[in-house]
Deep mutational scan, measured.
Amino acid sequence: QTVQFNGLEYHFPNPEEAEKFAKKVAKELGGEVRVKDGRWQID
């Protein structure tokens, strides 16, 4: 599972970890999490 933001990609072994990370980062950055092409993106 991949999380993308600021032009970087973070890879996680399972979707739960990816989701948790994506939501944490979005909260800290005040961004929005969305899934695109099977990847988590933070904008």
Score class of each variant (00 low, 15 high):
residue 24 K to H: 11
residue 10 Y to F: 13
residue 15 P to H: 09
residue 10 Y to C: 13
residue 12 F to Q: 00
residue 6 N to K: 08
residue 25 V to P: 02
residue 6 N to L: 12
residue 1 Q to P: 09
residue 9 E to H: 08
residue 29 L to C: 15
residue 4 Q to W: 14
residue 7 G to F: 04
residue 33 V to E: 03
residue 12 F to V: 00
residue 37 D to R: 02
residue 23 K to S: 08
residue 29 L to W: 12
residue 12 F to T: 00
residue 4 Q to E: 14
residue 11 H to M: 07
residue 2 T to L: 10
residue 38 G to A: 03
residue 2 T to D: 03
residue 1 Q to L: 12
residue 5 F to Y: 11
residue 29 L to F: 14
residue 1 Q to G: 11
residue 9 E to S: 10
residue 23 K to E: 09
residue 24 K to Q: 12
residue 26 A to Y: 04
residue 31 G to T: 10
residue 7 G to W: 04
residue 3 V to K: 00
residue 34 R to W: 14
residue 3 V to L: 05
residue 17 E to A: 11
residue 3 V to N: 00
residue 6 N to V: 04
residue 20 K to W: 10
residue 19 E to Q: 06
residue 27 K to F: 11
residue 6 N to Q: 09
residue 18 A to T: 00
residue 14 N to S: 14
residue 12 F to N: 00
residue 37 D to W: 01
residue 30 G to I: 03
residue 6 N to C: 15
residue 40 W to I: 06
residue 31 G to I: 12
residue 25 V to E: 03
residue 7 G to D: 06
residue 17 E to S: 08
residue 37 D to T: 01
residue 14 N to K: 03
residue 15 P to W: 12
residue 2 T to H: 05
residue 38 G to Y: 01
residue 28 E to K: 09
residue 30 G to A: 05
residue 20 K to C: 14
residue 35 V to S: 06
residue 35 V to I: 13
residue 28 E to A: 10
residue 14 N to G: 07
residue 34 R to L: 11
residue 20 K to R: 13
residue 22 A to Y: 03
residue 38 G to F: 02
residue 37 D to E: 06
residue 13 P to M: 09
residue 18 A to P: 00
residue 6 N to E: 07
residue 16 E to I: 10
residue 22 A to I: 05
residue 41 Q to V: 15
residue 3 V to A: 02
residue 1 Q to N: 14
residue 38 G to W: 01
residue 41 Q to A: 06
residue 36 K to Y: 08
residue 29 L to V: 14
residue 3 V to Y: 02
residue 7 G to Q: 05
residue 26 A to S: 06
residue 9 E to N: 08
residue 4 Q to R: 11
residue 4 Q to S: 13
residue 20 K to Y: 10
residue 31 G to R: 07
residue 25 V to N: 03
residue 32 E to H: 12
residue 1 Q to E: 08
residue 40 W to L: 07
residue 18 A to D: 00
residue 10 Y to H: 05
residue 14 N to T: 14
residue 19 E to W: 09
residue 11 H to W: 13
residue 7 G to R: 04
residue 8 L to Y: 13
residue 19 E to K: 06
residue 40 W to Q: 02
residue 33 V to M: 06
residue 36 K to E: 14
residue 5 F to V: 14
residue 37 D to Q: 04
residue 37 D to G: 06
residue 22 A to S: 03
residue 33 V to L: 11
residue 16 E to C: 11
residue 8 L to A: 10
residue 36 K to C: 14
residue 40 W to E: 03
residue 41 Q to C: 14
residue 35 V to H: 12
residue 28 E to D: 09
residue 42 I to E: 03
residue 12 F to A: 01
residue 30 G to N: 09
residue 17 E to T: 08
residue 2 T to S: 09
residue 32 E to K: 10
residue 23 K to Q: 11
residue 25 V to W: 12
residue 24 K to S: 09
residue 35 V to P: 04
residue 37 D to F: 03
residue 34 R to C: 12
residue 12 F to D: 00
residue 27 K to C: 15
residue 10 Y to D: 00
residue 28 E to V: 08
residue 2 T to F: 09
residue 27 K to N: 10
residue 21 F to M: 01
residue 26 A to V: 06
residue 25 V to G: 01
residue 15 P to S: 12
residue 5 F to P: 00
residue 19 E to F: 08
residue 13 P to Y: 07
residue 26 A to D: 02
residue 30 G to L: 05
residue 19 E to Y: 11
residue 26 A to N: 03
residue 27 K to G: 08
residue 40 W to A: 01
residue 15 P to A: 13
residue 23 K to V: 10
residue 20 K to P: 01
residue 21 F to W: 13
residue 15 P to V: 11
residue 42 I to N: 02
residue 2 T to Q: 05
residue 6 N to Y: 07
residue 39 R to I: 15
residue 38 G to Q: 03
residue 16 E to T: 11
residue 7 G to V: 01
residue 24 K to L: 11
residue 37 D to N: 10
residue 28 E to R: 07
residue 37 D to A: 04
residue 26 A to C: 13
residue 31 G to Q: 08
residue 25 V to R: 04
residue 18 A to E: 00
residue 34 R to S: 14
residue 11 H to E: 07
residue 40 W to V: 04
residue 40 W to Y: 07
residue 9 E to F: 13
residue 21 F to C: 14
residue 12 F to W: 02
residue 21 F to R: 00
residue 24 K to A: 12
residue 36 K to P: 04
residue 32 E to Y: 13
residue 25 V to Q: 06
residue 33 V to T: 06
residue 27 K to T: 10
residue 9 E to C: 15
residue 24 K to F: 09
residue 22 A to P: 00
residue 8 L to V: 13
residue 31 G to E: 06
residue 5 F to M: 06
residue 39 R to M: 14
residue 27 K to H: 12
residue 31 G to V: 15
residue 42 I to M: 02
residue 7 G to K: 04
residue 30 G to T: 04
residue 22 A to F: 04
residue 26 A to Q: 06
residue 27 K to Y: 12
residue 29 L to M: 10
residue 37 D to P: 02
residue 22 A to C: 14
residue 28 E to F: 09
residue 41 Q to W: 15
residue 23 K to L: 12
residue 16 E to H: 09
residue 36 K to R: 09
residue 5 F to E: 01
residue 3 V to T: 00
residue 34 R to D: 06
residue 27 K to P: 02
residue 43 D to A: 12
residue 8 L to K: 14
residue 22 A to T: 03
residue 2 T to N: 04
residue 22 A to E: 01
residue 10 Y to Q: 02
residue 17 E to K: 05
residue 2 T to W: 13
residue 21 F to S: 00
residue 39 R to C: 13
residue 34 R to G: 07
residue 17 E to W: 05
residue 33 V to Y: 08
residue 24 K to V: 07
residue 13 P to A: 11
residue 25 V to K: 09
residue 14 N to W: 04
residue 40 W to N: 02
residue 13 P to S: 13
residue 22 A to K: 02
residue 37 D to S: 03
residue 24 K to Y: 09
residue 43 D to C: 15
residue 34 R to I: 14
residue 17 E to L: 10
residue 17 E to I: 06
residue 8 L to S: 08
residue 14 N to Y: 05
residue 35 V to N: 09
residue 38 G to T: 03
residue 24 K to N: 08
residue 41 Q to G: 05
residue 16 E to G: 08
residue 13 P to L: 11
residue 41 Q to S: 10
residue 38 G to K: 02
residue 6 N to A: 09
residue 42 I to L: 05
residue 1 Q to H: 15
residue 20 K to T: 11
residue 18 A to R: 01
residue 30 G to P: 03
residue 30 G to D: 06
residue 8 L to T: 11
residue 38 G to L: 01
residue 10 Y to V: 06
residue 27 K to Q: 11
residue 43 D to K: 09
residue 11 H to P: 04
residue 10 Y to N: 00
residue 21 F to L: 01
residue 39 R to Q: 10
residue 42 I to F: 05
residue 17 E to R: 04
residue 24 K to W: 12
residue 30 G to Y: 05
residue 30 G to H: 07
residue 9 E to W: 10
residue 4 Q to L: 15
residue 35 V to F: 15
residue 41 Q to D: 07
